[in-house]
């Protein structure tokens, strides 16, 4: 008999093995030192938040046919704007909204360059990055600090569960929001009219066009909305993770997010798994440096997440298939 379960196991054998190994490893580590284990896992989740937001931004764009390598710039600009608005108004909510809108604006700019002007999309994304690096570097003033930071909110009952509770259910609001958004994006992409049309436009825009779907409008909408997610990642960095702004504080996360997107095969849930993996590598790296346990220069340990990026991309690169029409400007007949 071919039950759905069996098929599921067969198709996901690698992932199942990885999951079991992970659970065993966590159990072992928890047994050795509960506190450090919880700390590392919680830190993994925190590190993964901007990555998954960036990856969602990237994959919504690419699913509709637009490559976005400007995520780094979108995050950085949003982080900066959130910071400024918070410093001026003292409101965390307003600052978050400002960051999200900034991300949307940059997304719209990318859509304008690649859909309307038909500029090469890689160049369009680079333009976003250059603008962000330049503007934030120029206007940044040393010595300002945000007025407050989002604080963790423990969710009753759930936060009491060992390991899972402290890791997932004692977080500040933007983290919760992100976790919800992962599932929202997944749902929209696969279960709604908007998602079906988005994927069609990214795979075969002419087919979509002959069915009366407005390819340009779909791409504009998607890239702009996706920009909001990158904007949220920026807001997260200043308002929740750090509590201030520094030059180049995104530190390559926008690019790692692209690796996360590819590793996650342009699928929101898989991308989340990938983001957690990268987050874990980062957290582990920090922990190792902190303990000074290994006799390896800290620069090498610091390379861990990036090394992982390279290995993962070299390993999966050949087997995944990006949306067929990604990167190609669509020209109406």
């Amino acid at each position: 008999m071919k039950t759905p379960w069996r098929t599921f196991f067969r198709q996901n054998r690698g992932r199942m093995i990885a999951a079991v190994a992970l659970v065993l490893f966590v159990a072992y580590a928890y047994n050795r030192n509960a506190q450090i284990t919880e700390a590392v896992l919680a830190s993994s989740l925190r590190q993964s938040i901007p990555l998954i937001l960036g990856a969602l931004c990237g994959l919504i764009g690419e699913r509709s046919g637009i490559i976005n390598i400007g995520i780094e710039g979108q995050m950085l600009m949003a982080a900066f704007v959130s910071f400024l608005v918070n410093v001026k108004t003292g409101s965390l909510i307003l600052a978050t909204i400002a960051g999200v809108l900034m991300g949307a604006l940059m997304g719209w700019a990318l859509a304008f360059m690649s859909v309307t002007l038909r500029i090469d999309q890689i160049i369009g994304g680079t333009v976003l990055n250059m603008i962000a690096f330049g503007l934030t570097g120029y206007f940044y003033q040393v010595g300002l600090a945000t007025k407050g930071k989002f604080q963790p909110i423990a969710i009753p009952l759930l936060s009491k569960i060992p390991i899972i509770g402290p890791v997932f259910f004692q977080n500040p609001p933007l983290t919760y929001l992100t976790l919800v958004l992962i599932f929202v994006v997944h749902f929209f992409l696969y279960y709604t009219r908007w998602g079906l049309r988005t994927r069609a436009v990214g795979e075969h825009p002419r087919a979509a066009d002959t069915l009366g779907i407005d390819v340009y409008r779909m791409r504009y909408m998607n890239v702009t909305l996706a920009g909001m997610l990158a904007g949220l990642a920026g807001a997260y960095l200043t308002l929740e993770a750090v509590g201030s702004f520094e030059r180049m504080m995104t530190n390559g996360r926008g690019f790692v997010a692209l690796a996360v997107m590819i590793f996650g095969k342009w699928d929101p849930l898989s991308a989340w798994g990938a983001a957690l993996l990268f987050g874990f590598a980062t957290a582990l790296q920090t922990q190792l440096q902190f303990m000074g346990a290994l006799q390896i220069p800290h620069q090498f340990i610091g390379m861990l997440p990036y090394l992982l990026t390279i290995i993962v991309l070299a390993g999966v690169g050949g087997r995944t298939r990006p949306p067929a029409a990604v990167g190609q400007p669509y020209v109406k007949e």
Binding site: T192, R193, L196, A200, A208
Partner: peptide
């Protein structure tokens, strides 16, 4: 669209939806 099912290809652009948006 090669990676879509037959059904998805047929309804694309004239989708059957519930609540206005859900396929």
């Amino acid at each position: 669209v090669p990676v879509f099912t037959v059904t998805e290809n047929i309804i694309l652009g004239a989708e059957v939806v519930r609540f206005g948006i859900v396929l």
